[in-house]
Write a protein that binds this DNA or RNA. Structure first.
Lengths: 206, 206
DNA sequence: GTCTATACTGAGATAGAC
DNA sequence: GTCTATCTCAGTATAGAC
């Protein structure tokens, strides 16, 4: 059989995006792809490694674009705008998302099943490292510890917004592009990153 | 066997907290609890329902406390402070977390395995509904759609901070209580909720 | 090198005796 | 209420045909 490997990848991407990783058995994938069970283990070694290849194929271009845009922002000269750095990191994701619903579905499944941390560690580290470097330059006055916590808050909000609960758009009636989500998120996060640093046990701003 | 049900619950809570839900088999739970496999299905129906009972036992008091504090804040009279409402919602979680590491571990596992959305839907809805009502009063000028998106961002940041990646505290050297995390998070989110609403395609603040 | 056929181990679930 | 025995289905491993 020609292209056994590609047919497994394509079918796996489709089924895992539709049903999730845990709910999709290798036997279902091989039945729909018309290949033998052992061929999966020959080409990929395990179900987990198969997933890795499926994700890598789609996420690699996004992360390349992220790094390219971050390089551009950094080269534009300081002082860097927090908004611009956030935009450079998030826009490639939203643009891919708006054009490729299947990719969004897949990443949403990964997030919903708690598989994102491992995937991020294996495939997203270079782009994230680049982002941290440039973002740090945009916030020179923020204490390092506070900076890291705020990055942490950002990651949570971003993951939940890009990968989780897309049904929230129903509320307004309009479908709602990812581009719009990102605009809202960037405004929210920029304000958060610029917030005064809390001191002492209780915060008494207001 | 007396107290079969309770012994199953206790053992399940311990093992799932240590190893995760998927990695803990019913056979391992029944071996350590000294009961029969079928007893689990008799008392709980399925592995999933067993997990529900385990989580409910621990999360119910936290959500009760949340509602009580939100009632207090609302009764204090308007205008309500965004910080106070956020504090009322998050403090019970951090206090329980700082006192009960096993509960934190369990919730962290739930989050890491993508089981939180279902748990939230089944057990946290009343407390969240109460929070939304009071929070809305603290932000009367914010458009409804933007309000909902910002709640969404908050949920993501909060889930990631309370349940995910506690190792981030290593960076600073100090252990870092949940109380401290909440203070930082409240400051960050309050600024985000008060950010200007983005209009048009691109944001040009700065 | 690629792939097929088949067997192995362990999971959750269930029927029915006691 | 509890337990024994059994069922189905999962991922994995291996032997050997082409």
């Amino acid at each position: 059989m020609i292209d056994t490997r590609e047919r497994i990848l394509d079918t796996a991407e489709k089924l895992i995006g539709e049903q999730g990783y845990a709910a999709t058995s290798l036997r279902q994938i091989i039945a729909e792809a018309g290949v033998n069970l052992a061929a999966v283990h020959y080409h990929f070694g395990s179900k987990e490694h198969l997933l890795d290849e499926v994700v890598l194929r789609k996420s690699e271009p996004v992360n390349q674009e992220r790094i390219a845009r971050l390089d551009l922002v950094e080269a534009s000269g300081e002082p860097l705008s927090v908004e611009r750095v956030l935009e450079a990191f998030m826009a490639p994701m939203s643009e891919t998302a708006d054009q490729n619903p299947q990719f969004v579905r897949l990443m949403g499944r990964m997030h919903a099943e708690g598989l994102m941390p491992g995937i991020v560690e294996r495939h997203f580290q270079p782009a994230i490292g680049r982002f941290l470097t440039v973002m740090r330059k945009a916030l020179p006055g923020l204490p390092e510890e506070e900076f890291l916590w705020r990055i942490h808050f950002m990651i949570g909000a971003m993951a939940h917004t890009m990968c989780g609960a897309p049904d929230y758009t129903r509320v307004s009636g309009v479908p709602g592009s990812f581009r719009e989500r990102i605009d809202r998120l960037v405004a929210f996060l920029s304000a958060g990153f610029r917030a005064p640093v809390p001191r002492g046990q209780k915060i008494e701003v207001e």
